[in-house]
């Protein structure tokens, strides 16, 4: 680590050592602390601050619901439903079994969805807030 490499790190990754390559972080920090204040570092810090003004897009309920619905459409059915479907297929034939299990799978997903809606919303809300928290921490 030398002054030239420190300038390269700041130019590429910004003034926050937490964003520098892990292998160079400690040496970079030490060199930064040892030297006098640098206009380049200050300018990089200003840009870092501005970059955090870019808003984190919020996930709409409509998008979330479409994505959740696509999981079932992609064939992600709970294992117990698949086992049940296989047993029904042996007894009644494949067509009836698939129709019955599609209804059960939708019901399982919807009921799980309903029961988890509050916590999922809380998680989504927290996820949308985390960018604000990060900007306060890093800015």
């Amino acid at each position: 680590m030398n002054a030239e490499r420190l300038q390269q790190l700041v130019a590429a990754y910004g003034a926050d050592p937490r964003r520098w390559p892990e292998a160079e972080r400690d040496a970079g920090r030490a060199l930064l602390a040892a030297g006098p204040g640098d206009a380049t570092v200050e300018a990089a810090r200003d840009l870092d601050y501005l970059l955090w003004a870019s808003p984190q897009p919020a996930v709409s309920m409509a998008l979330r619901d479409r994505v959740l619905a696509s999981a079932a459409a992609a064939g992600l059915t709970p294992r117990r439903v698949r086992l049940w479907r296989d047993r029904l297929a042996l007894t009644f034939g494949a067509g009836w079994a698939v129709a019955a299990c599609a209804g059960v799978a939708a019901g399982v997903l919807v009921s799980a969805q309903i029961s988890a809606d509050a916590s999922a919303d809380a998680v989504l809300y927290q996820a949308s807030q985390s960018a604000l928290d990060d900007s306060e921490m890093l800015g």
């Binding site: 996930v59 709970p78 799980a112 999922a120």
Partner: peptide, 21 residues
């Protein structure tokens, strides 16, 4: 991958905001 509904919910919460951003 096993169709765990709670895991699907959690995956959406964890990844969808990130990929949308």
């Amino acid at each position: 991958g096993q169709g765990d509904a709670a895991a699907i919910q959690a995956m959406v919460a964890r990844k969808l905001p990130r990929i949308l951003a």
